[in-house]
């Protein structure tokens, strides 16, 4: 690939192929967004990802895009987030979350995590959001 013209053609062809494959993937479908509607399932997911995590009390966001699960002994807070068709988990000890704040029924999290700097969990109502905010306040440096 020393010839710049051939190189440009190869790259243009590759870019077209990439665009075509993404378009084809969209066109034929076959995937569905992950839904978190069962705190027990969210806890099980955390237990799979984090060896030794014993799920305790949990709650799922009203839109099914997030779940909060406290460890049975209250030592750690587990967070499960739906990302596309997959879920992503994080576990925090007290003081490891940068900030938790409430905006109506929504709980907003900020993390010192380059790949996941913030997250939002929209709970069923303001009361549930406030109840969880106070439960998990100790995991945040700011609350």
């Amino acid at each position: 690939m020393d010839d710049p013209i051939i190189l440009a053609l190869v790259l243009a062809g590759a870019a077209l192929a990439v665009a075509g494959l993404i378009g084809f993937n969209r066109l034929i479908g076959g995937w569905s967004p992950a839904a978190l509607d069962d705190p027990e399932a969210a806890g099980a997911r955390l237990a799979e990802d984090v060896v030794g995590f014993e799920p305790g009390e949990g709650a799922c966001a009203a839109d099914g895009r997030a779940a909060l699960v406290l460890e049975a002994d209250g030592e750690r807070l587990g967070l499960v987030l739906a990302r596309g068709g997959r879920t992503v988990t994080r576990v925090f000890r007290p003081g490891e979350v940068d900030a938790v704040s409430r905006d109506g029924a929504a709980l907003d999290f900020r993390f010192s995590d380059f790949t996941l700097p913030r997250a939002r969990a929209i709970m069923a109502d303001d009361a549930e959001a406030e109840a969880w905010r106070s439960k998990i306040a100790r995991f945040a440096r700011q609350s």
């Binding site: 590759a14 990439v18 969209r26 076959g30 995937w31």
Partner: peptide
């Protein structure tokens, strides 16, 4: 097998 457009796009762009 499973494909998801966002993941597919990321993989192919990383490849390019």
């Amino acid at each position: 097998a499973r494909f998801e457009p966002g993941d597919t796009a990321a993989s192919l762009i990383m490849g390019m």
